[in-house]
Design a protein around this nucleic acid. Structure first.
Lengths: 197, 197
DNA sequence: TCGCGAAGTGGCAGCCACTGCCACATGGCC
DNA sequence: GGCCATGTGGCAGTGGCTGCCACTTCGCGA
C-alpha cells in the first residue's frame, strides 16, 4: 500500500471521527458539512469526495461492522451447515457490537432521532439483508433455495436488529445474547434454516 | 366534513397525482417541487404544507395502502386466532396491490431507482413493521409475547416484500399468491405465529 | 534523480430541497 | 354581514450537493 493510499485512509478515518464528535456535541442537523470539513482541515469539496452524503458520514461505522460480518460468513468453508455458518455470523456481530460499545450506542441514538439518517440506516440494512440472502442461497445450493434463503436472511437480520435495539435502549447494560438466544429458540422448527451453535 | 376539508382533501389528491405524472414522465430527480406546484396551480409553499418532502409525495400512495391494511387487522375481533387475523391482513394487502396494478409498479420502480426514495420506503416499512408488532403483541396478550410478536411481524413483512417484489419485477404478470403461499409454508412449524387461512 | 502523467485537493458558481416569517384571502360561525 | 380561525402564497435565506477547472502532490520509469 503506497503512501498515497495510507494518507487517504487516514483522512477518511479522521473525517468520520471528526464528524462523529461534532454530531454528538451539537446534534446531527445542527452540524454542517462545512464545519466538519473545517474541523478536519480539508476543503468542503474534498469531504464530499470521501463521503457522498452527511448520513454516510454518521453511518459508515455501523456499515463497516456489518460488512465485516458478511466477510466472516463468506470465509466459512462452503460445506459447513448453514445454521452453523449463520451462528458464526451472528456471534461476530454481537461480539463486535458489544466491543464497540459507546460509539455504536451513540450512532444508533443519533440515527433514530434523525429522519434522514434513520431512513438511510434502514436502506443499508435492507441492502445488507439482500447480500446475506445471496450468500445463504449459494450455500443452500440451487435456484429453488432462493425463497428459503431470503426468509432465513430476514430472520437473521431481525434477530440482530431486535438484539441490538434492546441493548442500545438499555444503554448497553442488558444482556444482548439472552435475547438473541430466546429469539433463535422461537424461530426453530420451521422449514427455514436458523442459526445454531 | 366541511367544504374546507373537502377542498383540502381534493388538493392533496391532486398534488400526489400531478407529482406522480411528472415523476413517471421525466423521472424523480429531474422533477422539481416548483414544477409540481406550478402544474397543480398552487404556490410552492403550499405544496410543502401538504407534503413535507418530495419522497413523501411519491410514496404516499403505497403508504396509504399499508396503513389501510393495518386498519383491517385492527378491525378483526380480538379473540380471532392470530394466524387467521394475519391472513386477513395479508389477503387485503395482496388484493389491493394487485388491484392498484400499474401505479404500484411505477411507484416501486421509481423508488428503487432513487436512493433517497428507496431509503424513505425502507423507513416507512420499518415503522409499519413496528406498528404491526404492537398490534400482534396486543392480540397475543402479555409482556412475554413481545418478542414473538416482533418476529411474527417481521415474518409477515418479509412475506409481503418478497411477494410484491417478484410481482413488480415481473411487470405484474407473475402469480403473487403462489409465492406468498410457498413462503408461508416454509415459515410454518416454529414457535412464531404464521398467517393461516 | 529528475520530470511527467495520474490522481487527489480545493475553490467557485450554481441548483434545488426545505424553512421561517409575514401579509393576504377565504371558509365557518355568530 | 362581520369576525376569527385557518389555509395560501411570496420572499429571503440556509445548507446539502454537484460540475467544472486550476493547482498540487505522489509514484514511476527513463
Amino acid at each position: 500500500m503506497g503512501l498515497r493510499e495510507t494518507k487517504m485512509e487516514r483522512t477518511r478515518q479522521l473525517l468520520a471521527d471528526t464528524a462523529f464528535e461534532l454530531f454528538t456535541a451539537q446534534g446531527f442537523a445542527a452540524t454542517t458539512m462545512e464545519q466538519i470539513a473545517a474541523a478536519a482541515e480539508v476543503g468542503p469539496r474534498t469531504l464530499y469526495r470521501y463521503y457522498a452524503t452527511k448520513e454516510a458520514l454518521l453511518l459508515t461505522f455501523v456499515e463497516q461492522r456489518l460488512d465485516e460480518a458478511l466477510d466472516v460468513l463468506r470465509a466459512q468453508p462452503p460445506d459447513m451447515p448453514v445454521p452453523e455458518a449463520l451462528y458464526k455470523l451472528l456471534d461476530y456481530v454481537l461480539r463486535t457490537v458489544a466491543e464497540s460499545g459507546d460509539r455504536i450506542i451513540a450512532v444508533y441514538e443519533l440515527a433514530w432521532r434523525t429522519p434522514s439518517a434513520r431512513a438511510q440506516l434502514s436502506d443499508n440494512t435492507s441492502r445488507w439483508r439482500g447480500e446475506l440472502a445471496t450468500e445463504i442461497a449459494r450455500r443452500m445450493g440451487g435456484r429453488s433455495a432462493e425463497l428459503a434463503a431470503t426468509l432465513a436472511s430476514a430472520n437473521t437480520m431481525t434477530v440482530i436488529e431486535v438484539s441490538v435495539r434492546t441493548w442500545v435502549e438499555s444503554g448497553g447494560r442488558s444482556n444482548m445474547r439472552r435475547i438473541t438466544h430466546r429469539a433463535l429458540e422461537l424461530l426453530r422448527g420451521s422449514g427455514v434454516p436458523v442459526a445454531t451453535p
